[in-house]
Design a protein around this nucleic acid. Structure first.
Lengths: 236, 236
DNA sequence: TACGATTAATTGGTCCAGCCATAGTGAAGC
DNA sequence: GCTTCACTATGGCTGGACCAATTAATCGTA
């Protein structure tokens, strides 16, 4: 009976690391440290916060892994311009802990991405369209599986960016990253033609400012990809 | 645990804490530590990983803040049953760093939640319906602003749960938490009647297995809430 | 024997002090 | 003016120490 009792437990006082994270959060929200600028050195923060350097380092490490800040030996600690990778680790552990299946990830995509494609059709800039076009070219020219998956990712990424919603952008970047990492272990038997065809159709719909078409094509695309993956790897 | 070349390879970018997180991730994915069970003590992990205890603690602290595991003095470190709060901190910092406005959070809700409500109408169990009903009752009986916001959150939470998609469930729990935390600082002038009316309509649509109505009502609900908030707090 | 109190061992929380590796700085030397 | 090199600052990491909370073992008494 490995089942132990960890749930009925009181958490009396906030641990120092959590408090320090709060202090650092304050430094950011008050503008004492602005994006891209440098934090005070660890030894100084420790003195200022009245804590040990090891504790400060714990707090800073949490934020570094999340992508909130980056540390450089001999130089200093810098606040990130934006938290590009902030959802990567969490999504990874979500898959691990909650045993999220590929099916559930695909379902999330199916639920959200068509809507995002529709928004992209309304909002895409000339630059977005160019990025989309380049992603299609890259996919056509791709020689290795890895190249192809990267191009695939770039296409969807461009759509999320064009949708103008940063939360969804970051969320789906993480989800796609997780999915592609598992897909890259598959064979290369998965058809290249069909995804490419759908990408072209989606691109045409976005360029033609046709949200409904974009939505519908994206839906077909994801459904198709899911089915293809299901056939080539039925155990999952 | 066998040492791989990736771990012994000299890689200036990969600091020891990141590698340790990878090792811990392996412990989880291989089933060496299952959800709810206990990790080896820090001192033991340090010896096994060939690292200092302080470094191990940094890695563990990252995972604890993310909600992957929980640590208890005198007892031990336990792997979480599921990562309920794993997206909380990231979303918080997303708002801080990328300066995500309430508008963008509302837009995300507007993009996703109607679809989730539609799914809920298709999949909701009797238990889900009961939870929704109770949330409405709680909101009717609420006396303080805090009570009301909690009941509000519970209603939407029940919908996400009923939608059957855990990723969206966690994502929107985090978003709502962030939004409500900022809304709770508002006055209580915001109307209670209108959200409650929409909740009832959404509930009826879900109970009546009418996805289209659920989608439409949810859309109206969020739009309405956004506009109310905009009026009472125009600066944001 | 049964049960409460005491003691000991375990474990995470925190702190201290030190050394290393790297990056920036500025002086010295050409 | 340029390169070279020592110096300094900073993060990376280690070892050890002690504290506080929890659990398990032990003891004492009714």
């Amino acid at each position: 009976m490995p089942r132990t009792t960890a749930e009925t437990r009181k958490q009396p006082d906030t641990r120092i690391t959590a408090r320090l994270i709060g202090r650092i959060k304050s430094l950011i929200s008050t503008g004492a440290v602005s994006p891209g600028s440098k934090f005070p050195p660890e030894r100084e923060l420790a003195k200022e916060f009245g804590a040990n350097r090891a504790s400060v380092r714990q707090a800073l490490k949490v934020l570094e892994i999340m992508g909130v800040l980056s540390q450089h030996v001999g130089d200093g600690t810098y606040l990130s311009e934006s938290a590009e990778t902030i959802l990567n680790e969490p999504i990874d552990f979500l898959v691990l802990l909650d045993d999220l299946s590929q099916h559930e990830l695909f379902e999330t995509r199916l639920m959200m991405e068509p809507e995002l494609a529709a928004r992209a059709a309304e909002r895409a800039t000339a630059e977005d369209l160019s990025t989309l076009r380049n992603a299609i070219f890259s996919m056509e020219r791709s020689k290795t599986v890895r190249e192809r998956l990267n191009a695939d990712l770039a296409f969807h990424d461009a759509i999320f960016r064009a949708s103008g919603n940063r939360i969804c952008h970051l969320l789906f970047k993480s989800i796609h990253r997780t999915l592609l990492m598992s897909m890259s272990q598959l064979s290369d038997r998965v058809s290249l033609d069909r995804p490419l065809m759908f990408h072209r159709k989606i691109y045409d719909a976005i360029r033609g400012r046709n949200p409904e078409d974009a939505r519908r094509c994206m839906q077909q695309h994801i459904t198709d990809a899911r089915d293809l993956l299901g056939k080539s790897h039925p155990s999952n």
